[in-house]
Amino acid sequence: MLRYLRLYRSFLRFSFSRAMEFRVDFFFRVVMDLMFYITQIGFFAVIYGHTRELGGWDFDQTLVFISGFFLVDALHMTLFANNLWMFPFLVNKGDLDYYLLRPVSSLFFVSLREFAANSFLNLLIAMGISAYALWSYPGATPASQVLLYLALIANGAFLYYILQMLFLIPVFWLHSARGLSDVFASFTKYAERPERIYQGYVRRVLVSLLPLCLIASRPAQILFEGPDFWTLVHITSVTALFFLVLLLFWKLAVRSYSSASS
């Protein structure tokens, strides 16, 4: 474990020095994510101009929910996004060889090699938006509930990473992950809307087979309505199960990897 922490510290040092070399890109990426936040809030502001509630939530609640999603997105962008973007190229060009030869877990190395220092600033901005949303939310939210909510948001970021990785791994067989990657991008929009707008089978799928509602929506629901033992068990067990599936899928994929011609 200590070895992995030391290794991650090296990743951080390397990533920060690289980010400082491309200062304009650093600035553009910060503004880009800021635009994403503004357009999402703007979208809901327009929608709430025509309805009082959406999926049982008023605008204040939706603001808390969407700011929670921003936290998930910023964590994902900071820790995983750059690495996952590069991953299909590593497989196609045969560069994954270098990762497989290292004396550490290849999945760890592929997923966390690059820390996006520019997105780290956005993580701070997302935290600011989230703090504002929680502060302006008129309902009672005890500190313990807020802490639990933040833990579930961190879990949501991890689940988001797992799901994206599961959509990318087929690149070992399909040679191009573009189609599936775009499909995943389309599906992630389901995570950006309140869970209770979904009904019947769609909702069941979104909390089990493709658990996008567990990323930010369910944690927000727990924050507003208080913790429920079975909901917590549900979220943690689904995350654990998907992580297990990812590990097995990764093992299977690496076994079928044939270097440059893969």
Partner: peptide, 17 residues
């Protein structure tokens, strides 16, 4: 899949409005 996923999402969203 992408178009269908987008369509289902907006259909559900506006059904709630």
């Amino acid at each position: 899949v992408g178009s269908l996923a987008n369509f289902v999402l907006v259909y559900i969203l506006w059904s709630a409005i």
